[in-house]
Design a protein around this nucleic acid. Structure first.
Lengths: 297, 297
DNA sequence: TATAAGGTATAACCAAAAATTATATAAATT
DNA sequence: AATTTATATAATTTTTGGTTATACCTTATA
C-alpha cells in the first residue's frame, strides 16, 4: 500500500473528481482511476458510488478518508522531523585531529572557516591518530585530520597538505652561521627523539635509514611530545627533526634555527579522512573544500 | 513510499536485524536490505549506523520509528474500519420487489432464508418495477426482483423463476364445468384489465396480439391492482388473466377458478437483478442461491 | 436533436520498481 | 581453521504503475 495512493484518494475526495485530481498531480486520468481501483482492491470494497458517470464517496470511503489524511500528514511530519535533525547536525561540525595538526595547523584554519560560516558550531577533538580514527568510526566526529597512514576500507582518505620534517638546532650552536650541512654531520650531534611508538618518530627513522645514517646516530634523549622537544632544543640540549608546522612560529621568533640537510628533503602527507557515506553534508563538504584549497603552512 | 516498507523498518528496529525481519516476513534478506536502503534514500539520511556488520538505530531512525509505527497502525485501523462496515452491511439484506413478487412470492422465501440465516436482518421494499430499479441504482437496495424486462448494462440480470399468466373466472360461471376453452371464446366474456401502463397488462396484450384475438376483446373494466382484480372476479364481475403466483392460494381455497386456454400457454420470466460489482457479498450470494434453487410456486 | 465538452473505465503497452537467486564479505562462534 | 550468522551487491525476473488510445456516458450548447 502506497502512501501516494492514499494522498491521491484524499485529493480525489477533496476535488470530487478523478480527472481534476489527475490534472493537479500532473499524471494521466487513467493512472488515478487505477490507483483508486487498486485502493478498493486492498480494502475489498468500493469507496465510491459511481453514479451518472460521477464519483460519490460512500460509507467505506467516508470511514477511510480521515485515516488516510492522518497517514499522509504523519508521513509528511516524519520527513520534516528527520530533515530538522539533519539541519541540526548540519549546523555543527565535529573535527578530530592528531596532536601536531590539531595544535599547530588547525586553529588558524578554523578561524578562517568561522569567518565565512559563522553559524556552524565547530568542535575540535585532539588525540592520537588511533583514537581519532576510532572516534570517526563511531560517528563521534565527522572528519579526521591525521599524519599517519590510514588503512580502512570504510574510510575515504585524501592528502590535504604536504608537511616537511626539518632539522632544528639551538640558536647558540656551531651550525649557527651555516646554511646547509651534510647528512653525515648528524652523527656528531646530540639528537632528541620522540618515543619509539610515535608516528612521527617512525617516519623520521625510515627517512634516515634510506640515507644510511640511522644506525650511526646517537639516541641522546627521548621526549613524549613535540612541545617538550622544542623546549629542549631551545634550552640547547640538542638537535631534532620535527614537523615544520609545529615550529613555524618559533623559527620566525628566533627561538631556534632551521638548517638544510644537503640533498635530503623529508616530507610526508597530512591526511583528511572521512567515513564513506551515501549522504553528503553541506557544512562538512564546505570545510573540506577550504582545507584542500587554502595553503595552511 | 510504501506502508509495507515502514512496517518492515519497524520490524527491523524491533528485532535489531534485517535477516530476522526477512525471515519473519517470508521475504528474502536482500529485499529487506533494499527496503531499508530505499527508506534512507527517501529521507536522504541514514537511519542506522552500520557497525561491525550490524545495524544500530541512529538519531534519524529514532525520530522516524514512532511515526512509522503510528502510520502502520493507522493503516491497520483503516482496514478494520472498512471491514467492520462491510460486516455490518453483510448482516443486513435489503431487497426490493415489484408488487406481485413482493406480495405473493417473497414472504415464504424470506421465511426460509431466515430459518437458516437468522442473524441477517432482512428489509423488503415493495414498489413498482421502475422505482425498485431506481432504488437498486442508488444502492438503497441490494437486490431487485421484478417481472418486467430490464435494460441497463450496469445491472446483472438473471431469470430466477418462470411465472405463468392464467385465465381465471368466478366460481359461478358458465365455464364452471369445463376444463378448457378456445381462445376465441374470450371475446364473449367481460375482461377485467390492469391499467394500460402496467407491465403485466403490456405482456398480456402482446400474448393476445400474437394469437390475433386482442382487438376483438371488450375492455370491460380496468383496475389499479391485482388485489382489486381478484376481488372483482370473486364478485362475479368478469374474468381476467393474472399471474399464477398471485392467485395460487385463492385457487386452492376456491375463491375463483382457473381454466386452460387451448393451445395457449402464457409465461414470462421473473428477473433477479443485481448491480454489477467487483466485490461480492456473502449474505447476498447466499440469498440468490436460495432463490435460484428453491421452487417457490 | 445533434454535437461538443467533461467525466470515468478499460485495453494494450512500456518503463520503473521490487522481488528473487546467487554470491561476496565480514564478524562471531565452534 | 571452519562454521555460522549477518549485511551488501549483482544479475535476473516479476510486479506494479504509468502512458496513450479509445469507448461510452451525461450534461450543456448550438
Amino acid at each position: 500500500m502506497n502512501i501516494e495512493t492514499l494522498r491521491m484518494f484524499c485529493l480525489v475526495v477533496d476535488l470530487g473528481s478523478i480527472s481534476q485530481a489527475a490534472k493537479l498531480s500532473y499524471v494521466s486520468q487513467p493512472a488515478v482511476t487505477k490507483q483508486i481501483r487498486q485502493l478498493e482492491e486492498t480494502y475489498k470494497a468500493t469507496l465510491f458510488n459511481r453514479v451518472e458517470g460521477r464519483l460519490l464517496l460512500n460509507e467505506n470511503g467516508k470511514l477511510l478518508y480521515p485515516i488516510a489524511k492522518s497517514i499522509v500528514s504523519d508521513f509528511e511530519r516524519s520527513k520534516e522531523a528527520v530533515l530538522d535533525n539533519i539541519n541540526q547536525l548540519e549546523s555543527q561540525l565535529k573535527i578530530g585531529a592528531s596532536f601536531t595538526i590539531g595544535e599547530y595547523l588547525l586553529p588558524k584554519l578554523l578561524g578562517q572557516y568561522k569567518k565565512h560560516y559563522s553559524d556552524t558550531k565547530i568542535t575540535l577533538i585532539v588525540d592520537n591518530t588511533p583514537n581519532v580514527l576510532e572516534s570517526l568510526s563511531n560517528d563521534v566526529i565527522d572528519l579526521a585530520l591525521v599524519e599517519g597512514n590510514v588503512e580502512n576500507k570504510n574510510f575515504n582518505v585524501e592528502a590535504f597538505e604536504e608537511d616537511q620534517l626539518i632539522l632544528i638546532h639551538p640558536m647558540e650552536h656551531k651550525w649557527s652561521n651555516r646554511n646547509v650541512i651534510n647528512i653525515q654531520e648528524l652523527a656528531e650531534e646530540k639528537m632528541i627523539w620522540r618515543e619509539p611508538t610515535s608516528g612521527t618518530r617512525l617516519i623520521i627513522e625510515s627517512f634516515l635509514k634510506e640515507y644510511g645514517i640511522l644506525d650511526s646516530l646517537e639516541n641522546y634523549m627521548e621526549l613524549g611530545s613535540t612541545q617538550a622537544i622544542k623546549s629542549a632544543v631551545e634550552a640547547g640540549l640538542g638537535i631534532s627533526i620535527v614537523s615544520r608546522v609545529a615550529v613555524q612560529r618559533d623559527l620566525e621568533q628566533g627561538v631556534f634555527k632551521e638548517i638544510e640537510i644537503k640533498d635530503a628533503y623529508f616530507k610526508r602527507n597530512l591526511w583528511l579522512v572521512r567515513k564513506k557515506s551515501r549522504f553528503s553534508r553541506q557544512s562538512l563538504d564546505t570545510f573540506v573544500e577550504l582545507i584542500k584549497n587554502v595553503p595552511v603552512i
